[in-house]
Design a protein around this nucleic acid. Structure first.
Lengths: 360, 360
DNA sequence: TTGTATGCGTTATCAC
DNA sequence: GTGATAACGCATACAA
């Protein structure tokens, strides 16, 4: 702020700078930052830009002593290579993009963390995009962020298969998390939701529940469809299932709780933990005791579900591992290698305190 | 994460990997993607690259008909401008970096969302970095991400004043959220935590609590210091205050609850909502009733605190607004304008169900 | 209105 | 080992 001259003209006409000002050597003609370029360092150190580049990248072929000198002048000038220019020259940005339906959902955060850690170890940074559960924006955002990154992780994409398949080539290389798409040979990391949901069913049936409400997730969500359908199948002959429109967020669950109760259900299964917790919040507010009067089940096992009162019974999925596995595949593709085979995790039912025998 | 220098990237040696492929002559020599460049479009449309550029950027000075033709050939070729090249040529990337101490904290997510929405409206995307509450990594990460973006938002920085001031010029332009730094004229968006904490004090005193435990946040956290000190001052003559080491996450609160109880406190104040909820989880587990036996107070008012059982009494801070205001200032700087004056929000005590009269 | 020629900051391919 | 120099893909003064 204080260093560089006040009011450096936005678009100084300096370009032709034939007048070599000793102080202001060919400075950037645009914007703030008195950008120190590789050339400035080269000039100051009395070497060629190529050599400076070699030194900065620890290329072996530089005389040790020269290297030190260059490093010193670089440091003294405060030289910092432009990531953008490097990106252009190298053909890679060192960035990996990821789009999620809702950054506010702890489940996606965990995936993010897994990805971030794994990619970070390889020197990659994350470009995060939140599509706000909007299928239409999703691919646009994905395309756009892919443009600034070397690869993309599509987390729980809500887009239609057709559009996804159509635009696939524009976001390549990418890997799918939480969803597989026919006609697409993109590496996929998924979870066997059906198995998890069947476990929930068995659990509730065993507890004697004869009427269950499912708080349905966003219509565009494939995991929701899989969970709902599995629930419907598995409910057959065990209990009556009522599907209640809901959503994916706390508020949605809160708002849907009434409708769930109206079905006479003694157990409520949420599309995810947030929805389940939202519903539980409502039950608490209107004095319905959990699990004495009504049982509540979530899905995902976000960190918080372990700390609520009562602790939430839920289906645990290996969230960080999803991120790690996704990176493993993307990294392979970035190296022009064949990615590891698709993987599908089997979730585990985490029985805690929010479920109990059916009230009678 | 790795320090810079060695092992900059795993695949450094690979670059030269594939040699001249007879198929993609003159095309990008590296990696996948048979990149369609502006030149290809120009050639195919029979115009100059400059014209294509004008068309792509909606410059007025192109004949309507020509423009359409160019657009069509561009579309048919599947041309998509390289964001990296644009960044280099324009001198701006369209990216804004933000570093937060913990992406897993809903409080920061809300700030993120506010920033994302505001910046998004101006065509900017977010480059998010999580410093994992590590003061040492923080600035390194910030510098690095700043290099790929046009500006930076430092959210609740944990770094020492000195280092921050020293490296300030390397991350400019930037704005501070949740912390002001003397000797630094960076635009700042903050919250008057002291006022919020005093409200908590008054509330607890009024409820008759004579012994209170504060679950302290990370040592490097300035907000923690401010909250703790305010609490200590305001406690004078009203109640006995015990400061308990804790942290910033759910687990930390859970683990610290025992120690808080051991002080004989009838009220527990958490550094933030997560910690408070974690502690509450523990209380629930060991059968201590909230608020009948022990009151619990949080800080931040994350969305979830409204849905817990009992609903959490907490200090509400305008999270999304922090993000919005931050962008307003950064945007101004990016336009070479003077940023709006610093702003400091006054939080509001949100009295809910987790606090009650002192148990006696 | 359109084309030409540079520049953006680095990397990489050559020669030397 | 080191130094010119051509990409990298796009934007933009300037000339036409």
């Amino acid at each position: 702020m204080q260093h560089d001259g006040i009011g450096v003209d936005v678009d100084a006409g300096e370009v032709g700078g034939s007048d070599a000002d000793p102080l202001d050597i060919g400075a950037a003609q645009r914007g703030r930052g008195q950008t120190v370029t590789i050339r400035d360092v080269a000039k100051a150190a009395g070497v060629s830009p190529a050599t400076v580049s070699r030194v900065m990248n620890n290329r072996e072929s530089v005389a040790p002593e020269l290297a030190r000198r260059v490093q010193q002048t670089a440091a003294s000038l405060g030289y910092r290579p432009s990531a953008v220019a490097q990106g252009l020259a190298r053909g890679r940005t060192g960035l990996v993009a990821i789009t999620v339906p809702d950054l506010g959902n702890p489940m996606f955060q965990s995936v993010l963390r897994g990805l971030s850690r794994a990619a970070g170890r390889d020197g990659y940074r994350l470009l995060v995009t939140d599509s706000h559960e909007l299928p239409l924006e999703e691919l646009v955002l994905a395309q756009e962020s892919r443009l600034r990154a070397d690869g993309l992780v599509l987390c729980s994409p809500r887009s239609h298969e057709r559009e996804l398949a159509e635009l696939a080539h524009t976001i390549e290389p990418f890997v799918l998390v939480n969803r597989s798409v026919a006609d697409l040979d993109a590496p996929t990391v998924s979870v066997d939701y059906a198995s998890g949901m069947r476990a929930v069913c068995a659990h509730l049936a065993w507890l004697g529940h004869s009427r269950v409400a499912y708080l349905e997730g966003p219509r565009a969500s494939i995991p929701n469809r899989e969970r709902r359908e599995t629930l419907q199948e598995a409910a057959e002959g065990r209990f009556e299932l009522h599907v209640v429109e809901c959503g994916s967020m706390l508020e949605d669950g809160f708002d849907a709780a009434d409708r769930a109760l109206a079905t006479g259900a003694t157990a409520i299964v949420g599309y995810n933990d947030l929805v389940a917790l939202g519903a539980h919040g409502k039950l608490n507010e209107i004095g319905v005791r959990v699990p004495d009067q009504v049982s509540v089940v979530g899905f995902d096992d976000i960190p918080l579900s372990r700390y609520t009162a009562p602790r939430l019974t839920t289906v645990a999925i290996p969230q960080e591992e999803l991120g790690r596995e996704a990176w493993q595949r993307l990294a392979a593709m970035l190296r022009d290698e064949a990615p590891p085979a698709d993987v599908c995790f089997t979730p585990r039912l985490e029985v805690r305190q929010s479920t109990g025998p059916a009230a009678r």
